[in-house]
Design a binder for these strands. Sequence first.
DNA 1: CGTTCTAATTAGATCGATCTAAAATACATA
DNA 2: TATGTATTTTAGATCGATCTAATTAGAACG
Lengths: 337, 337
Amino acid sequence: MAVKRTTLMDVARAAGVSRATASLVIRGSDLVADKTREKVEKVIAELDYVPNSGAARLRGQKSRTVGVIIPNLVNSFFSEFVEGIEAELDEQGYQVMLASSRDDPERQSGLLRRLREHDAEGIILFPAEGTEPDTIEKLVAAGVPLVQAMRHVGRDLSDFAGSDHGLAVRLSVRHLRDLGHRRISFVSLAGKVSTREERLGAFEEELRAQGLVNAGVIDVPLEWDGSPQSAAMLMALEPRPTAAICFNDILASGLLRGLFDLGLMPGRDLSVVGHDNLSFIDLGAPPRLTTVQVFPRQIGAASAKLLLRRIKDPGAELKSEIVTPRLRVRDTTGPVD
Amino acid sequence: MAVKRTTLMDVARAAGVSRATASLVIRGSDLVADKTREKVEKVIAELDYVPNSGAARLRGQKSRTVGVIIPNLVNSFFSEFVEGIEAELDEQGYQVMLASSRDDPERQSGLLRRLREHDAEGIILFPAEGTEPDTIEKLVAAGVPLVQAMRHVGRDLSDFAGSDHGLAVRLSVRHLRDLGHRRISFVSLAGKVSTREERLGAFEEELRAQGLVNAGVIDVPLEWDGSPQSAAMLMALEPRPTAAICFNDILASGLLRGLFDLGLMPGRDLSVVGHDNLSFIDLGAPPRLTTVQVFPRQIGAASAKLLLRRIKDPGAELKSEIVTPRLRVRDTTGPVD
DNA sequence: CGTTCTAATTAGATCGATCTAAAATACATA
DNA sequence: TATGTATTTTAGATCGATCTAATTAGAACG
């Protein structure tokens, strides 16, 4: 059953040339005469020859493979992010090795190790919650081209692509202020990651700058149902907020659902703003969620570009690529009455 | 900048043993004395040695890597599917190489080739629309362990994991019949893939069996917005359907949105059933979509298991794993008045 | 036709691990 | 101590492509 592999040697023999020449043909070198090239290419097609990249990379050093680690794939934010990466790398002939850390730093360390064993030329890391700076430092010290995406651990250790979280929050706050809201809450997800701190920090700062009131921060777990219990928690706050900014669209949509279950109307009884602009927002029944678009696909593409740059030039200066978010006003925010 | 790689030779030298012994330690062989093992392991840790899998696989043949090709990642159905695969393979120490065919058979061929070059031990293929049986035949002939998932091309060529599309449709039809519906439409997506045929075939068959009327099949493209124009198309049919079964949840949610835009109420003016049970269904505003749950994660896991089995035993009998779908009745189906 | 220059080809070493088969060491027993 | 057996260790060949440096074929010219 196990067919013996067709090697370059077989091809060379069948085409009546040397291994070296056959190798040149495969790599598309222009050192080889057209006639010879044709002959060899014909044989390759006939034998359905597939090069053994193990051998190639052993000698040639490059695997044309890049490792990508993300916390999970359930949130479509991550899928879009990966899509962006994949599209960009594919164009350059790179293959993505995908792994999911499940937001567990230990698991993540194992994956990093495995990706290195698999000889990834570089790694795009969406760091798991609680990742130690040490992890990053070691990678960089070992000379592994690395880009951190979205979240980052330890400043100025690696290239970075992400979003301007501060601006995202400021956009939401200002939008709500323009609508007359003064008491605003923030629905965050439990845990300690740089994004949470950044958004929360920006939230409080901007409230202060605008002279508005922080009506309370509530923490909920990130569940597939978006933790609709946030609705009741918000309505129990004193003084009661007239608007809530949510860490992401999943939480925001969960909140919408919770409001409906309480017989309340988003945009009237409570204005709701999300983050991410996931594609499902436009689907289904109104009202549609007002949210800040974060462009995960672009961020993915940017990470890929940064990584390719670093692979080419390991000594290049550290660079950050920040994608500017954009507010998408839809139906769940309205004037305060 | 480019640090020279630490090789097994370096480890061996530093530990005062031979390359062979060091190799044994790495592979966890019990042929090596405890004292020696400790010594070597210490050195490995000190030098932060990472084996070069290129060399290993060149000699040892196994890459512990599996290729996965899916049409795209935007539909979260695919992400969940990939999650299932990744989780299962990860447990066995396998690494996933992910690639997206964008539903283009040509691109897909290129990717298949690339995955083989990268020495994937096997491939899980969610075939692109319009994939030729020839593609599959060649792979199988070349001895590449292959599992087709969800869709399949050419029967009995490879292992297969998927869903019982026929049952899925029958469940929806019977549910609608129980609610008193007699004129039912099907919203399909344009294109020719086995799933479409299967679902459509089962639809017509079951209508006949139940003595119901096919009120018309409409084809729409799969867009991110779920092609809400389907609503108007359905309402223009003569005689007008009282219920519609949609190929997937994206189309169904698009239809819901289209109905609202026309001022119609799903579940009252038109009953709507989806397929897949994507996780966003529970989010956001009511009404929630009635749909058939398809369990992509389980199907992914099943594909992974089938593939591992075939890798272990290439001569094993062909096997199909069919996951049974389940109807989730929510708000968008109601009695006909 | 011999010489020179360029274009095309090739032999052979090499990458870093694994495998086989043999050697060295330890251990038990007579 | 000698001998046989079990346990560890190792030298050296090997996987399949690529690279370097050298060789050969081909073209151009006086």
